[in-house]
Design a protein around this nucleic acid. Structure first.
Length: 586
RNA sequence: GCCGGUGUAGCUCAGUAGGUAGAGCACUCGGCUGUUAACCGAGCGGUCGCAGGUUCGAGCCCUGCCGCCGGCGCCA
């Protein structure tokens, strides 16, 4: 209950100075001062959402891939087409859009997507999209929806972000939101109101606002919902530089005493998670996650992947004996899925390149900053691809996602303590460090006793990424410490063709990947070695009976990626309702 | 699972050598027409995690249990 660590629960802490107890970056309204100029996605560099990413302007080859073209990349297969290898990735031809049906040989069109989003100022400031305002209508037109679906038909209110951007100065507006804070000075009251786009101070003067409304509003407690009309004024005394001089105020719902105040313990915030999600910190993280998800889907779509939806109820206990959540499924034993991998392997025979985003469940009683019992697992599987191609996919995906998030969520990242430049600097290719070399490195750098064949522990992992600013692939681990489905390295029978991806700055493993064993006899042999019940794997073995092909895939922990991107401390804050070993409520 | 830390008011914490419980915030009432986590005055507020033990006397010392936090292992 007591926290020695920083005050993560500072609801009202200040922005500019650390909370007396620690980091205190979660203040709400003080932020508005900073938001003022940035809220429209203008970023620091002035132009809306188009940061000066080196190599961004040109559109010739992948700027982050030296040479733009990798002769060995792209997997030439039988029909002479190339999958997702470097050449395809390297191209950036905005006009060559992926379109229905075909998925092969498509160029990486994410640049265009990205720029389009950036231009819209979509970013963390959903002035348009979240508010159902004009921004959304713009998007709707593209998608082909009737603009009416962008918001209520009688929508007249204004997004606070628009006010803070100076678009409404001198005009009468209607604002709806929640009371973030009240400061009453007798006949003058200040209400700080929050909507999804930002917070703004509203001044209520007795005599201007009808008496009964004034009384009700001044008495309304934090988080009461409220609607008010008034004139927007630019005023240096107001946080954020703008305020609304209220003319009419309606308390939509007078809240009870809000249980979250300033300086809260982790435990309380977890108990009150359903209310804590309203905090500026949580809002920012969820916004970044939203853009991350969008980026990821854009990338996969642009590269010819089909998104599929495997079940999370399974009878495969799989995944190297780690603990599973078991339950009774109408009389038979079933499990919550730990990975969709095997199902994706089945689906590549229909789609060749597939990905899925499903929850995965791990019943290990892990007590760390990086573990959830339920996490969002982004998994991909590619037919015809080997381990090197697999890594190319991973690094391209991660790089693109990092860049997109950096450019669309500039304000959120900055407030959370992540310099967007850190993410813009992420560059493929990532270093490939074979396990053998990693062992040598460790032996020479403080771990003389580390033996070949052991798995890396946290201290080893930290040493391996020490000083790095880029992710690194550790490849070709010993067979013994990896799963049965991984393919043996033809050049070294002791290791398998696999890779982990370690994030920089000690954020740890974000991806686990491998080329899969395709030889049925080999798989059967390994399963027997592990003492597995073969009957449980019959359907999986079938995949090696009917047109087996070389294939590879990976799994990425979405919350871990987000943790790295946002530079936060704990994965549990990367998801609105985290499930940890001792919490399934709320 | 192992190791360490911690549990006092609604919340965040203090509690000095063992001597009978404090502050700030929140809330209520009063004051204030430019506040910025507003401020000023008053009020409300505790079975000191639970159960034993030592002692004339325990929030404080001892034992056990429980909760929470962190580290390790395991992984994404």
């Amino acid at each position: 209950m007591r926290r020695r660590d920083p005050c993560a629960g500072c609801w009202l802490g200040r922005a500019d100075e650390p909370c007396a107890r620690g980091r205190g970056t979660l203040e709400p309204h003080v932020r508005t001062a900073r938001l003022g100029g940035l809220h429209q996605g203008q970023g620091r560099r002035g132009r809306p959402g188009v940061p000066a990413l080196p190599g961004r302007a040109r559109c010739t080859g992948r700027p982050d891939h030296p040479g733009g073209r990798d002769p060995g990349g792209g997997v030439a297969h039988r029909h002479g087409r190339r999958h997702l290898g470097a050449p395809a990735l390297g191209r950036c031809r905005p006009h060559e859009r992926p379109h229905g049906g075909r998925h092969q040989g498509q160029s990486l069109d994410v640049q265009a997507h990205e720029d389009r989003h950036a231009r819209r100022g979509a970013c963390g400031t959903p002035a348009g999209e979240a508010q159902g305002g004009r921004g959304m209508m713009g998007a709707s037109e593209k998608i082909g929806l009737d603009p009416v679906y962008a918001g209520p038909v009688d929508e007249t209110r204004t997004a606070i972000a628009d006010i803070l951007a100076g678009k409404k100065t001198g005009k009468d507006v209607v604002v709806r939101g929640w009371i973030h804070r009240t400061r009453s000075k007798g006949k003058l009251a200040f209400l700080v109101v929050r909507d999804a786009t930002g917070t703004i101070q509203c001044t209520l003067k007795q005599g201007v606002v009808p008496d009964d409304q004034f009384t009700a509003a001044a008495a309304a407690l934090m988080e009461s919902s409220i609607a008010l009309t008034g004139e927007v004024k630019e005023d240096p005394r107001a946080p954020g530089g703008f305020e609304i001089g209220a003319k009419e105020v309606q308390v939509v719902h007078a809240a009870e005493v809000f249980p979250i105040k300033e300086h809260q313990s982790t435990e309380l915030l977890m108990d009150l998670r359903h209310l804590w999600v309203r905090s500026q910190e949580q809002r920012r993280i969820q916004r970044i996650k939203h853009h991350m998800l969008r980026a990821v889907r854009d990338w996969f779509h642009a590269n010819g992947f089909t998104e599929v939806t495997p079940s999370v109820i399974t009878t495969n206990a799989a995944e190297g004996g780690s603990d599973v959540f078991k339950f009774d499924y109408f009389g038979q034993e079933a499990y919550l899925s730990q990975t969709a991998q095997m199902y994706l392997e089945a689906l590549i025979f229909a789609h060749e390149k597939v990905y899925s985003l499903t929850p995965s469940f791990r019943a290990e009683k892990s007590r760390t900053l990086r573990h959830l019992t339920e996490f969002n697992h982004l998994e991909a599987e590619m037919a015809w691809m080997g381990s090197e191609d697999n890594m190319k996919v991973q690094e391209s995906l991660i790089t693109y996602t990092a860049h997109t998030v950096a450019r669309t969520c500039h304000e959120e990242l900055t407030v959370l303590g992540r310099d967007p430049e850190d993410l813009l600097a992420i560059k493929a290719p990532f270093e490939r460090l074979p396990y053998n070399d990693a062992v040598t490195f460790l032996n020479d750098n403080g771990f003389p006793d580390f033996k070949w064949g052991e798995d890396f522990g946290a201290p080893h992992e930290r040493k391996l990424v020490e000083g790095r600013t880029q992710p690194v692939f550790i490849t070709n681990f010993p067979k013994k410490i990896k799963a049965f489905y991984m393919k043996e390295d033809p050049d070294d029978a002791r290791v398998v063709l696999c890779n982990d991806c370690l994030a920089p700055e000690g954020y740890g493993e974000i991806v686990g990947a491998s080329e899969r064993e395709v030889d049925i006899d080999e798989i059967v042999r390994k399963l027997k070695e592990e003492g597995a019940t073969l009957a449980n794997y019959e359907w999986y073995l079938d995949l090696r009976r009917y047109g087996s092909v070389r294939h590879s895939g990976f799994g990425l922990g979405l919350e871990r990626l987000l943790l790295w991107f946002t530079k936060q401390e704990h994965v549990r804050d990367m998801t609105p309702f985290p499930r940890t070993t001792n919490r399934a409520y709320p």
